[in-house]
């Protein structure tokens, strides 16, 4: 599996072959607070980079989840729909959101390294 990359919308991405696994960052999960609802895209749907691909809700508010990668949704993590609290427990591990068949690999170059993301998140807390 590739090194984890990060987007400005607070998603993380790992790559295996031409499949990207995407979730929300630990920082994003902390900012949201207790996650109580998750809505994921349908399998087979085509999504565009920076387009809306899901929804997470805390007790306070609903937030959109964006995809940092263009492509077709190949899989979604039903376990976080059934247990939304898992997003707070392991946001960058078992609580991944969806997998995408990558259409354009060059999009990956626009993502940040962990060090750069941590710096970005500090400067852009929301």
């Amino acid at each position: 599996m590739s090194e984890k990359k990060y987007s400005k919308q607070h998603e993380w991405v790992t790559i295996e072959g031409d499949i990207a696994t995407i979730g929300i960052t630990t920082h994003a999960a902390e900012m949201l607070g207790d996650v109580v609802f998750v809505e994921l895209p349908e399998k087979g749907k085509n999504v565009e980079k920076e387009g809306q691909a899901g929804v997470v809700e805390s007790t306070k508010a609903a937030s959109d989840v964006y995809t940092p990668i263009t492509g077709e949704i190949t899989d979604t993590n039903q376990s976080i729909v059934d247990d939304p609290g898992a997003v707070n427990k392991d946001p960058e591990g078992s609580a991944w959101f969806f997998k995408i068949k990558i259409k354009n690999k060059s999009e990956l170059d626009q993502l940040m390294s962990k060090a750069n993301y941590d710096k970005f998140a500090k400067e852009n807390p929301n």
Binding site: G33, D34, V36, S58, T59, K60, N88
Partner: peptide, 12 residues
């Protein structure tokens, strides 16, 4: 204060 470190669900 909207919440403290333990979070809304815990506080509730």
């Amino acid at each position: 204060p909207v919440q403290y470190s333990s979070g809304i669900v815990n506080e509730h």
